[in-house]
């Protein structure tokens, strides 16, 4: 074997983590029956605002910036940016009952625009590529677990050598899965996504659940953009770096059959597929073909799922539909 398997897995996991956030957030959103196609825009906003937050903290604190504070600020900025973007989406689609597809696409355009604006502004201000100080960079991208664990052959690299966001993402997906399957609120949320009129008749506040799930889901998705910028992109704003991440995340939601636990391995698989062209190049296959692999896999999964016709694997029944109470 002329390539390094552990290295490939590690790269897949690192590259999959932004997707894990993007996808999990969108799963939460879609469970409420809202199809937010603005994930791409949300991830751009998360990336730009996360970077901006860390950058300004770094500037203001001078030399004694704390790594952990910088990470928290980046997380918070990205999350809030995502919440803001999806709040616009929620207001338009839930309160004003605008078409979700159109609104989502508009949010993508808006979000990428805002992200580019903030990122490029920073870049111009600094002159050249903006980046935070090397001391802080490490607190985003360096492994968090003890060296002794990382030194275990193979497993050390495959399981214990990651930055904190990887483990945060895994924990988040597990918590989300528990929430959806083991709690009353999770049951209510799924009910809202399946049949809002039924939930309404049972006395569940449909609007509240839709808003909360969409806004929090958008925030989680945006964190994915921040993770990408701060780890993979090396805290440097590059206006094309995030392109397509959000769309892959939306495709991944379908691939995962709307289950956060599936997103754990699904994001690693897609993360791997996205970098295959770098790691396992086959000379006669152009890299562009490699890059469409995630979409091809999604299409195949869709075909298989629709052939199997298993009810549990179908999207939430009211996905994409607005809810009018008076139409009962």
């Amino acid at each position: 074997m002329n390539f390094n398997l552990a290295g490939l897995i590690k790269a897949a996991v690192l590259n999959g983590t932004p997707l894990l956030f993007g996808t999990s957030g969108e799963i939460l959103t879609e469970k409420s029956g809202n199809l937010n196609l603005g994930v791409e825009g949300l991830m751009f906003m998360g990336g730009a605002f996360g970077l901006a937050g860390a950058f300004w903290y770094d500037q203001l604190a001078g030399g004694n910036a704390s790594g952990i504070v910088a990470v928290l600020i980046a997380l918070l900025c990205a999350f809030l940016a995502g919440c803001f973007g999806s709040l616009i989406f929620s207001f338009l689609t839930i309160s004003l009952r605008a078409n979700q597809n159109v609104t989502g696409l508009a949010l993508t355009i808006f979000g990428t625009g805002v992200g580019q604006f903030v990122g490029e502004q920073l870049r111009l201000k600094v002159g050249g590529n903006i980046s935070i100080s090397n001391a802080l960079k490490g607190s985003f991208a360096n492994p968090v677990l003890p060296q002794s664990l990382q030194d275990i052959p193979f497993l050390g690299q495959v399981l214990f050598s990651y930055n904190g966001f990887v483990y945060l993402g895994i924990a988040m997906a597990i918590v989300m899965s528990l929430f959806l399957n083991r709690t009353r609120r999770g049951l209510y949320l799924k009910a809202v996504g399946e049949s809002p009129s039924t939930a309404d008749a049972a006395g569940i506040n449909v609007t509240k659940y839709k808003y909360l799930a969409t806004v929090i889901g958008g925030g989680i998705s945006a964190i994915g953009g921040m993770v990408y910028t701060m780890t993979i992109a090396g805290t440097v704003w590059n206006h094309t770096a995030l392109s397509g991440e959000g769309w892959v995340a939306v495709a991944l939601v379908i691939f995962c059959l709307w289950k956060p636990l599936n997103a754990l391995w699904g994001s690693v698989l897609f993360g791997g597929l996205m970098i295959m062209y770098l790691r396992v190049p086959v000379s006669f296959i152009p890299s562009q073909i490699y890059k469409v692999l995630p979409y091809i896999v999604t299409a195949i999964v869709l075909i298989i799922v629709s052939l199997r016709q298993k009810r549990e694997d179908q999207p939430p029944a009211s996905l994409g539909l607005p809810y009018f109470r008076e139409e009962r």
């Binding site: 799924k190 399946e194 049949s195 039924t198 009810r311 549990e312 179908q314 029944a317």
Partner: peptide, 11 residues
């Protein structure tokens, strides 16, 4: 009990 059942199919 409504004519059109208010039940969630996948539950």
């Amino acid at each position: 009990i409504h004519q059109h059942f208010k039940l969630i199919d996948v539950f």
